[in-house]
């Protein structure tokens, strides 16, 4: 009896979580300019508009991709030495550095966005893609920091001791043991930052100063003029990217472990 209730509850939750997404995605099939649900004169023409023919959207999509890949790469490159030093020395200074690096993710995004807006207007980078990339890299630095730290902690100390006994230098140990064993965690961190950067818009809104637009920004800007089915196409594309990325993380990395599951049970 209770089992049945539990299953019903879980299915209901899944339906509620999926419902608005399904509705937005199906609205992408609308033939006209207005969003209808269920869609009227279904067509795939909107997909062509979004990906190929409408310059507003293709430019926004290019910006989104550049920012997401740039920011994710930069945040991993920044996170690696911080996480590595914390793991290697465990010193209070490196712990402080890691904490400072996680602050942007912890404060309400609108506050950090306002701050970055001020920051870039003083530095002269306001409205440039580079400023956008750096801003997102800093905002999501906490994600690769956490996943790489989890990966480093998962390394069996016995390997390191063995390497040290055999006279391996720090560089050799790093290249032959640390790097390969933490690679899945690094990639996971990269993808977490990538997907979140792809979907973020409030910080980007303050940093871009309307000089360029990412897809989410473009949608946000057109909110007042009402929705068009082309926006729904963006939603389809974004959810597809998210599912693909997280499935890849689940397939090649240990997703339950990354999310903090107990290791002793399976």
């Amino acid at each position: 009896m209770l089992r049945v209730l539990g299953t019903i509850f879980m299915s209901l939750a899944a339906v509620v979580v999926a419902l608005p997404i399904v509705i937005v995605c199906s609205a992408a099939l609308n033939g006209g300019r207005t969003m209808f649900f269920p869609p009227q004169d279904s067509t795939l023409a909107r997909f062509g508009e979004f990906f190929i023919s409408e310059p507003v959207w293709t430019r926004a999509l290019t910006n989104s991709v550049i920012v997401a890949i740039g920011a994710a790469t930069l945040s991993v490159l920044l996170a690696w030495p911080i996480a590595y030093r914390l793991w290697k020395t465990g010193s209070r200074a490196s712990a402080l550095l890691a904490t400072l690096g996680s602050i942007p993710f912890a404060v309400p995004p609108i506050v950090f966005g306002v701050g970055l807006g001020f920051f870039w207007s003083f530095m002269g980078g306001l409205g440039t893609i580079t400023a956008g990339i750096i801003s997102h890299a800093v905002l999501f630095l906490a994600l690769p920091l956490v996943t790489i730290s989890i990966g480093l902690q998962a390394i069996d100390r016995a390997y390191l001791d063995a390497a040290a006994t055999m006279g391996a230098t720090e560089t050799v140990t790093f290249r032959t043991i640390v790097l390969p064993q933490t690679l899945p965690y690094t990639i996971s961190g990269f993808f977490f930052a990538l997907v979140l950067s792809f979907n973020e818009f409030i910080v980007m809104f303050f940093v871009s100063a309307s000089a360029f637009a990412t897809v989410t920004l473009q949608i946000f800007n057109s909110l007042r003029n009402g929705y068009t089915p082309t926006m729904a196409v963006a939603a389809v594309a974004f959810i597809a990217v998210s599912i693909a990325v997280f499935s890849a993380v689940a397939r090649w990395g240990d997703l339950p472990r990354l999310m903090g599951a107990d290791q002793s049970r399976s």
């Binding site: 979907n199 949608i219 929705y227 939603a235 974004f238 959810i239 997280f246």
Partner: peptide, 28 residues
Amino acid sequence: RRAQAVWLVFLLATVSLSEVFSVMGWDI
């Protein structure tokens, strides 16, 4: 554990989906 991983993929995909899309859905 397999089922958990599937749920996590589903939840992570929805949580990372931009606020603008979910609000759009509820708005409709």
